[in-house]
Nucleic acid binder design. Sequence first.
RNA 1: GUCCCCAUCGUCUAGGUCGGCCUAGGACACCAGAUUUUCAUUCUGGUAACAGGGGUUCGAAUCCCCUUGGGGACGCCA
Length: 480
Amino acid sequence: MIRVRFAPSPTGFLHLGNVRTALFNFLLAKKERGTFILRIEDTDLERSRPEFQEGIMEDLRWLGLGWDEGPGVGGPFAPYEQSKRSAIYQKYTQKLIDEGKAYYCYVTPEETEAAKKEAVLHHRPLRFDNRGRDFSTKEIDDRKARGIKPTVRFKIENPELKMHDLIRGDVAFNLDDMVGDFIIQRADGTPTFHMTVCVDDALMGITHVIRGEDHLPNTPKHILLLEGMGFKPPAYGHLSLIHGPGGEPLSKRLAAVSVREFRKKGYLPHGLANYIALLGWAPGNDREIFRWEELQQAFSLEHVGKSSSNFDPDKLNWLNGQHLRLLSDSEFTEQAMAYLLREEKLLGEEALVRRVLPVFKESVEYFEQLEEHLDFLEGYFEYDNQVLISRPESREVFEAALAVLPELTAQGDGLYQEFIDKIKPRVKAKGKDLFMPLRVALTGKEHGPELKKLFSQLGTTFLKKCFERALGRGTLYERN
RNA sequence: GUCCCCAUCGUCUAGGUCGGCCUAGGACACCAGAUUUUCAUUCUGGUAACAGGGGUUCGAAUCCCCUUGGGGACGCCA
């Protein structure tokens, strides 16, 4: 039984990169019928904020990435917030010190900084030179007297390390030209990321760590630390990074790629997930559109690529549009209404909007685009083509329409046909000259959905107001 | 500066493990046409790629090396 985790630090909202890591972990868990764990890495008290944790959890739930263990749902290894697990880390740090695998280091930040500059000058790796390992008792007492608080560093004994990465294959490191003994506990007594990650991955029984490629250089450290504590390291897989449309690195400041922004614009969670999955993963055949359950079945780590990829908004829009079209009319209406209500973009009467909504299912790629299509329902709009509306031929059409409306008896789509049949003999205009004025009178726009569909959904009461307005007789609604 | 990772159409990718089935396939975008008395949708067709150079081999997109390019890491952040 595999156990995977997504371990964000609550220092910002989720963006495309984070989400893909979460998604791949989730998908792997579902595919293998394993357990997906959410762990909050909030050991950086300075930058961690509760509202970010809340926000991340909300975004994950919205995407459908529910967790089996973690904040809110609990689990056998609770708590899942690292800020609440200090005593556990403390215990393991002490054990490492007792066993001589870690040591108190009295070297100051200023000294390591200076050593780094020195290293650059001599074309040497920018790493800690382990100078704190062998301080004499006198030296240590001296530094203590100067008020220097020690960090705890993990001793690197075997710098040569080979590992097998689930995605990248065999990777070899020589820690000697990467890092020196690294800090596992800060001078203020709090544990660092390396310590908390290793302890928690071990204690929580994590079997597969799927994370961003930026963590690849950390992995040898983690393997060594884990082994030092007597644990068997999990399998690691490193995902290459996602970049923006222009190839620029993704950043938390880039609003265009934050999950919240996609929610706000009205993307379907499963459309977004489908798109993200395709960034770095391919099914091995030509298929691209996956329903949520299908994605969970199709996913496999073997087909995850090694090269980095760029986010392409065009393709996301297309794919989301495809997912929209997969929805039934009633599903579409429910989801669109929920969106319009949530984002306070509802224009016109709710019942009317509900009826009209399905007409636009093929016209939009995400819900925000509904806004410009629906604005005519509110009644206060400018005609795209005022000249067309004012033409005598057009006015004749509107007069005839008003005369025909009360005579209509058909229901549904037949309403429009009956209307056309009855109005045609009464007016001179035909073809485009007949249909364009009708279209503009209804929606104010020259382009839009099929008149036939729209007509029957609007209802004769609303239609009557439309034609009256087109003739300059009052507005659809009274302004208050 | 040091180390690590990566490299197929503009973009996402298939193919690479088992070299010949690849005159390199699909998708987005773009262009053209059809359908739709509008726009969109849908459909059909088209432009477009194995970064460069060396090897290995009868044969390389596929294996090896170098170069170049891109990315990442080098925190008492995670």
